[in-house]
Design a protein around this nucleic acid. Structure first.
Lengths: 159, 159
DNA sequence: CTGTTTTTGGGACAATATGGGATAACATGG
DNA sequence: CCATGTTATCCCATATTGTCCCAAAAACAG
């Protein structure tokens, strides 16, 4: 069984605002209590970021660990909790993206789902194309750093 | 099902002073004995802070843990307990915000509900917009603090 | 190709937010 | 203790929004 979000899918946003979440990804979430995803604006790009409720609850819990009246707690709560939306699946595995998220990503008509391991992102297709081109370039120059991490992890493995 | 308060909702305060608490949040509170919320002025911002009675009782208990004649006990009791209002839901899931809370947050006409995990806040909409802009900036600079907490709690889980 | 899964479309229905009238509870002053 | 005006509660109506259900089209696998 798959456990992480991979691949890219381009699905249609119908006039009621619904989009299918890729079936393969729904299968990953199927074992969780909340049948749906949690989505929030990426703090660093014009994309919607999303994951299952389990992961998001862990995020909420670690924010809860800060002093509730501190600026640090407030900042993270405002950025990640107030701006996140639980989006339950309908009977066909679709979700409705709220207006605020559509606007943040500039999505209309089509949405690109980009698997990112423990999370995935939802982009306006042409915006994702541009982002990908830039990311590939960066990956090329930073490849040595990844190779280093790989070897570190491997050295700690047993038989 | 959902266990934390997420998202933002902007609801109307009618001329009788009633506001709908978002239905999704009422569902979280539905399993508690007191059908309503407990609200008090935020000690650190121009917002009304609120939660279910269960959490508020735990707050009261931890204040009770202080020496009853200490300044600390007196300060928290005055700030959080004396100024707290239990606000029961009416048949349609609305509450009436007392004058003191409306004044503290400068609310009139519209109220913004900001989910913050275990609690939520109620703001004057334009005041929340301003607060959010500032909070996002701060979250960006303090991101490392969250990353640290994350690594402590959620070491190595999937989606 | 043929059967199955997945995405997409749309109508029927239910839930929610909101408005307002009628009634009951309350504090106050007489 | 009662009268009274005010405040809050209950109840019902309604527009809107979101949810559910069924059906067709498209993609996919054997």
């Amino acid at each position: 069984m798959e456990r992480y979000f991979f691949s890219r899918f381009d699905n249609k946003v119908d006039k009621k605002g619904r989009v299918s979440v890729p079936a393969r990804w729904r299968a990953i979430i199927a074992q969780q209590a909340f049948q749906g995803i949690v989505a929030y604006p990426s703090p660093v790009s014009a994309a919607v970021e999303a994951c299952g409720m389990d992961r998001h609850e862990r995020l909420a819990e670690s924010i809860d660990g800060f002093n509730p009246f501190s600026d640090t707690h407030g900042a993270f709560a405002a950025a990640l909790l107030t701006r996140s939306h639980p989006l339950p699946f309908d009977g066909e595995g679709r979700v409705m993206l709220p207006e605020a998220l559509l606007a943040h990503a500039g999505i209309e008509g089509m949405a690109s789902f980009a698997g990112r391991g423990a999370t995935f992102q939802i982009w306006r297709p042409d915006a994702y194309d541009a982002y990908e081109a830039e990311a590939l370039e960066r990956a090329r120059t930073e490849a040595p750093a990844l190779a280093l991490m790989q070897s570190q992890a491997a050295s700690g493995e047993g038989a």
